[in-house]
């Protein structure tokens, strides 16, 4: 049935398979792991739905293609079929309920806050840069678009970010952590995270904030706990 010149119908499926390779980057935080897992689950569901629906569309076009033009002798007019209709209300509903359930669980994990985080960082966005305050140690790191700051953090410890802004809305976004939170001038936002993998991760303002939004970068340097402690102590000493 599938004549070769109809192969284009397969294109979208092929494209989606290509996308399969493009999953979220490997998670480097505890919460990121949950999100990546959820994403993969969604992806499998999406791929099934896409292939199923695209194949139905493709098949009906290929199989039932008719000659153009005059066709007054219409095919048997069919206007409905109750059993079918019930099925296609039920099918998406079942899938949606399933996805809601998993989202519910992961949302709770990602939004979970530690009573006593081992480290609290106050993040302040401004036009156009970032100011990071290590609350317990009273150490401040800050930088601007011309000279983006580096935020040094320990691995395997719970870090709480408390995020706010001094002017317009920004967003504290670390793609590798699979999370971002808006920096609003009128409230404090918070998320917690445990970094599981040492490394350097790029960060960037995620909410458009004016002229130099594209340049409002920062960098996160995650190092093992003891290394971090030494670094923090050295900072505290040099800070007046």
């Amino acid at each position: 049935m599938t004549k070769p010149r109809r192969a284009w119908r397969r294109l979208p499926e092929a494209a989606l398979l290509v996308a399969l390779t493009g999953c979220l980057p490997a998670a480097v935080t505890d919460r990121g792991r949950e999100v990546a897992w959820l994403y993969d689950l969604f992806f499998v569901a999406a791929a099934i739905v896409f292939v199923f629906v695209a194949a139905l569309i493709g098949w009906s076009v290929v199989r039932y293609r008719g000659a153009p033009g005059r066709d007054v002798a219409l095919p048997e007019p069919v206007h409905g079929n109750l059993r079918l209709e019930i099925m296609w209300w039920a099918l998406p509903t079942a899938l949606v309920v399933l996805l809601i359930g998993f989202t519910w669980v992961v949302l709770a994990q990602v939004d979970a806050r530690e009573e006593e985080p081992s480290l609290t960082i106050e993040v302040e966005g401004f036009q156009w840069g970032w100011r990071f305050t290590y609350e317990e140690a009273d150490v401040v790191v800050s930088g601007t678009a011309a000279d983006p700051p580096t935020l040094t953090l320990p691995t395997e410890r719970t870090i709480a970010f408390v995020i706010t802004s001094t002017d317009v809305v920004h967003s504290f976004s670390i793609p590798a952590f699979l999370i971002k939170r808006d920096a609003l001038p009128t409230r404090k936002n918070r998320f917690d995270v445990v970094i599981e993998l040492a490394g350097t991760y790029g960060g960037q303002c995620g909410e458009f904030c004016g002229l130099l939004h594209a340049r409002q970068l920062f960098e996160i340097k995650a190092v093992p706990g003891d290394e971090f402690d030494t670094w923090l102590a050295s900072q505290a000493r040099t800070e007046p």
């Binding site: 139905l56 008719g66 000659a67 153009p68 048997e76 296609w88 998406p92 949606v96």
Partner: peptide
């Protein structure tokens, strides 16, 4: 999250309706 997911259901129904309309038709491309 929940209310947004709900929209997928009637949207899916429209897709099925289009497909069922094409099914056994004589499609003029």
């Amino acid at each position: 999250t929940i209310t947004s997911f709900l929209i997928a259901i009637p949207t899916g129904v429209k897709f099925f309706g289009w497909i069922a309309t094409m099914w056994r038709g004589r499609i003029w491309l």
